[in-house]
Simulated assay, not measured.
Amino acid sequence: MRRAYPWSFFIGNILSAVYTVLFAYLTYNYVFLGQMETRFADFAGTGDYISYVVLGGTVYSLAVSMLMIVSRALITELREGSLEALLLTPSSRKGYFLGTGLQGLMRVGIEFSFIILIGWFLGLNLTHINGLTAFIVLSITIGSFFAQALVLGSIMLYFRDTYITQNTLFIVMALVSGVTFPVQYLPGWLQPLSMMMPLNYGLQAFRSSVIEGSGLWASRNELTSLIVLSLIYFGIGIWAIQVTEKRVVEKIFD
């Protein structure tokens, strides 16, 4: 496990989320002295900024980890020289990605728990959490990240690039998905991008279940959008992977 999945990925994802939460905590308490404008509560649905940012940073870290784990699978095979052998096997490609994602959940679960623990020490309020709803919402959200990762993986395999492609997506996700501030604060021309990000809908539903203790019915619109978006990403991803694999095989045998 240590040879295949470096500890640097694990530690880096945790530190990235912790830095986001810690920066928000220091800014909120020592720069703005715990004061928020009235529009924040209207847009976010809560006046608890610390809980808002902690949950945003935690789920964002979850999204980054799942996207990296699944999307980098095939291009890692290509770099290691095992992609040709993999493509010649009769194994299910969906099963291959599903197995990769399930294995990654073990590491992601540790990261998630660790960040939540740190957030709790910084002021995350869990007194109203609806545990069952939060678990269901998180499961659906993880499924959406899996579907999005298929599209990202096909793009990275096509261009044979990981760094620029994945980090561009991660930056856009952090900006337009409401990780540290509501989407309504964005310029009008940027807000439609948030509708393309599963993270946006997953965060809204997850925050509602944790901060307010709301049930599934209260987040039905966000969950519906999340499921529809997941199906779209999944369909595009499976098709794109098949097309990209053919192109890669042609280059291997040229």
Rank of each mutant, 00 (worst) to 15 (best):
K251W: 10
A174P: 00
L229Y: 12
L15Y: 05
V54H: 09
I241Q: 09
G101S: 07
V64W: 03
G188Y: 04
G235C: 11
R220I: 15
V59F: 08
R207Y: 12
L186D: 12
S8C: 08
S71V: 06
N130S: 11
E37G: 15
K251P: 00
L26I: 15
S91Y: 14
F97Q: 09
Y19R: 01
R39Y: 12
M197P: 01
S92M: 06
V228H: 02
I75H: 02
L169P: 00
Y60F: 15
S230T: 15
R220M: 14
F10M: 10
P192W: 06
G57E: 07
G34E: 13
G153S: 02
L132S: 12
V151Q: 02
F10N: 04
L22H: 01
F121P: 00
F121G: 01
T27L: 15
Y185W: 11
L98R: 09
L175Y: 11
I236P: 01
P187Q: 06
L190I: 04
L62S: 08
G99N: 12
P192G: 05
S71A: 14
V243E: 11
L78Q: 09
L193W: 02
Q242E: 13
S194I: 03
L26Q: 07
S92D: 08
L26K: 03
W189T: 06
S113Y: 05
S91T: 13
A174Y: 12
P182L: 05
T20V: 14
G202Q: 12
M106P: 00
G57L: 10
I232N: 02
V248K: 00
Y158N: 07
F206G: 02
Y233W: 06
G47Y: 10
T38W: 10
V249A: 02
Y163Q: 08
L98T: 12
F112R: 07
D42S: 14
L83T: 08
E245T: 07
T20Q: 12
M1S: 10
N221G: 00
F146T: 02
V54R: 05
N125S: 12
L126K: 12
